[in-house]
Amino acid sequence: PAILELCRQAGINLEKYPVRRRTKPVYCIEGRIVDFDAQSNGYDFDHAEDLCNKNPHVDIDCWTKVDDVQNDSEMDHIHPLVQLDPEWGKGLRDVSIGTMASWLDMISGARKIMEKYSVWTCGYCPEVQVGPKGHKVRMCKASKHQSRDGLHAWQEATIDDLVGPNYVWHVRNPFGPPLSNNLKRYYGKAPAVVELCVQAGAPVPDQYRSMMRLDVVPPDLDEVDLVA
C-alpha cells in the first residue's frame, strides 16, 4: 500500500512487511523486469546488513531513528479509543469514534511526511510512486497509452492520490427511504470511511460538515418544484 511505503521510506521497519531498500529504479526492458540494484558496485550490502544488525533502530538508508515496533502487539498499534475495557465491551459507537480519530491522524501524518518525502502520481492513470522520482516501468493502460508506449506521465501527488477518499453520498437517516435522484443537489458527500463512522455513531468532524451539507434541509419530493 502507498501509505505503508511512504512510512517505510520515512524510516519505520515492520517485521510483517519485509522490504528490500533499493538505490536504483527498476526498469522494464522488452517486457522483462530488470533490477539493476543487485548489480550495483557502489553499494555494500554486507556492510549495510552489519550496520542494521548492530543498531536495529536506525534505517540504513535514511539514518532515521525509528521506534522498535517488531515486539509490539497488534493492540499497541490501535488507537487508544479503540482499546476498550473488555468488561465494558466494545460498543459500536466507541469503535467508530476510534476509527474516525485514526483516519484523521493518518491523513494528518501522511501530509507531514509528504512534505519531506516525494510522492508521484501518473497524470493519466491512478498509479502512485513513492520516491524521489517516478519509475520507468511501462504499465500505463490509460487512454492513448500506445503513443507513450505505456510510459507513465509523473506529476506531484496530493494526499487524495496517496489515500483515495472514495467519496460517497451522505445518508442522514440510514433507516429512511433511499436517496432520490430528484433531490441529489441537496445531498452532501463525504469519504466512505467518514460516512461509515458517522452512521455508526461518531460525531461529524468539523472539516467535513460543509461537504456533507448538514445545514441544508432536503425538501420532500412533492415540494421540489416549489423550491427556487
Results as ranks from 00 to 15, higher is better:
Ala2Val: 11
Arg8Leu: 04
Gln9Glu: 14
Gly11Arg: 01
Gly11Met: 03
Lys16Glu: 13
Arg20Asn: 13
Arg20Gly: 11
Arg21Gln: 10
Arg32Asn: 11
Ile33Ala: 01
Asp35Ala: 05
Asp35Lys: 05
Gln39Pro: 00
Gln39Asp: 15
Asn41Cys: 05
Tyr43Arg: 15
Asp46Lys: 12
Ala48Gly: 15
Lys54Phe: 12
Ile60Phe: 04
Gln70Phe: 07
Asp72Val: 00
Asp72Trp: 09
Met75Trp: 06
Val82Pro: 00
Leu84Trp: 01
Asp85Trp: 03
Pro86Ile: 04
Glu87Ala: 09
Gly89Pro: 05
Leu92Ala: 13
Asp94Trp: 02
Ala101Tyr: 01
Ser102Asn: 14
Met106Pro: 00
Ala110Asn: 09
Arg111Ile: 00
Arg111Lys: 15
Tyr117Gln: 12
Cys122Asp: 05
Tyr124Phe: 11
Gly131Tyr: 04
Lys136Trp: 00
Val137Ala: 07
Arg138Lys: 06
Met139Arg: 14
Lys141Gly: 09
Lys144Trp: 06
His145Met: 02
Gly150Val: 03
Pro165Lys: 04
Pro165Val: 04
Asn166Ala: 12
Val168Glu: 06
Phe175Ile: 09
Leu179His: 10
Asn182Trp: 07
Lys184Ile: 13
Tyr186Arg: 07
Val198His: 03
Ala200Ile: 01
Val204Tyr: 01
Gln207Asn: 03
Met212Lys: 02
Met212Ala: 10
Leu214Ile: 14
Asp215Trp: 03
Asp222Glu: 15
Asp225Ser: 13
Asp225Tyr: 06
Val227Pro: 00
Ala228Cys: 10
